[in-house]
């Protein structure tokens, strides 16, 4: 990954990497090591004394039913978000791929949600579903369904899944369209000459050839659902009602900043870090086919 032709040793390269290394050390490496350190300490509520407790924080965490519920909830939430946003995007992309001339027009209309901050997305959907005023809640009420995500945990989960998936549709759509457009047209034409209709072509040619894109998007959607949805949960449900939407990244924040359980929160951070590392490894396994070091 070094150029065949390069500059010789001098102070200059150190000055060039300096700023980034400095910021990385101060704001990434040091805090992360602090999180590791704190995860093996118990600190009293006033921060006056702390005690080294080995893996007690982790053991306590693993013995906590609430934590495991949050883990399960996070996986459930992530699967729903990935499934919903990816299938919606795939259908839209498949349709857009058919009408290539106007694909840009539809693309323009479909990419907006990417630009919307998670917390703002939460606000939009919350407003739609507001139990007293929301337009969707009102419509549901006309059909005799009494929507109230502030009281009903399942409804709260549905709402955050909607908001989270909505935001991700744009991203998935763009990648699916790009993936489909990179499939050689001659393949599709050959299949058509072989007598395969549009649906058949999609299931037997296009979808299998899209599998690298699909896999990549799956990883990205899971990463997104795990870490980037904090704003949605925070704005819409605050993890409630009765922890029904308390996913891991919200729990870290809540236990640390609100509950002031520093050791427990740090232990959770460490576990989250390991999840990120695992996902990054998976992602790089995929990417390394294209990226040669």
């Amino acid at each position: 990954m070094l150029k065949r032709v390069h500059f010789g040793p001098s102070v200059l390269p150190f000055l060039l990497v300096g700023p980034q290394i400095l910021i990385t050390l101060i704001f990434f490496i040091w805090p992360a090591s602090q999180a590791l350190y704190q995860s093996v300490l118990i600190e009293d509520a006033f921060g006056l004394s702390s005690e080294f407790v080995w893996f007690d924080n982790f053991i306590e965490l693993f013995e906590d039913v609430g934590y495991w519920e949050s883990v399960g909830r996070t996986f459930f939430f992530s699967s729903l978000v990935a499934a919903l946003s990816m299938s919606a995007a795939l259908i839209l992309a498949a349709m857009a791929d058919r009408i290539i001339k106007v694909v840009l027009a539809y693309q323009t209309l479909l990419i907006w949600p990417y630009a919307v901050a998670p917390v703002v997305a939460g606000a939009l959907w919350m407003f739609l579903f507001d139990p007293t005023l929301g337009i969707v809640a009102y419509t549901l009420d006309m059909f005799g369904y009494d929507w109230n995500h502030k009281l009903n945990g399942n409804e709260a989960m549905t709402l955050v899944v909607f908001a989270a998936s909505w935001k991700m549709v744009s991203y998935n759509f763009l990648f699916f369209v790009a993936g489909m457009q990179s499939i050689p047209k001659s393949l599709i034409e050959a299949a058509a000459i072989d007598g395969a209709g549009p649906l058949r072509r999609f299931t037997s040619i296009i979808f299998p050839l899209l599998s690298p894109t699909t896999f990549f998007l799956l990883v990205m959607n899971v990463v997104y659902a795990f870490f980037d949805t904090f704003g949605i949960v925070h704005a819409v449900t605050k993890g409630g009602p009765a922890r029904a939407t308390e996913i891991l990244v919200y729990k870290v924040y809540n236990d640390g900043f609100i509950g002031l359980d520093l050791g427990g929160s740090a232990a959770q951070s460490v576990i989250l870090m390991m999840i990120v590392i695992a996902l990054t490894v998976v992602q790089f396994r995929y990417v390394e086919k294209k990226v040669a070091y």
């Binding site: 704001f27 990434f28 040091w30 805090p31 992360a32 602090q34 999180a35 704190q38 870490f227 904090f230 990244v249 870290v252 924040y253 640390g256 900043f257 520093l262 929160s265 740090a266 951070s269 989250l272 870090m273 990120v276 590392i277 990054t280």
Partner: peptide, 11 residues
């Protein structure tokens, strides 16, 4: 591997 969400407190 270190998104801000997982290292908020120490940062």
């Amino acid at each position: 591997m270190l998104p801000v969400e997982v290292r908020i407190l120490p940062t």
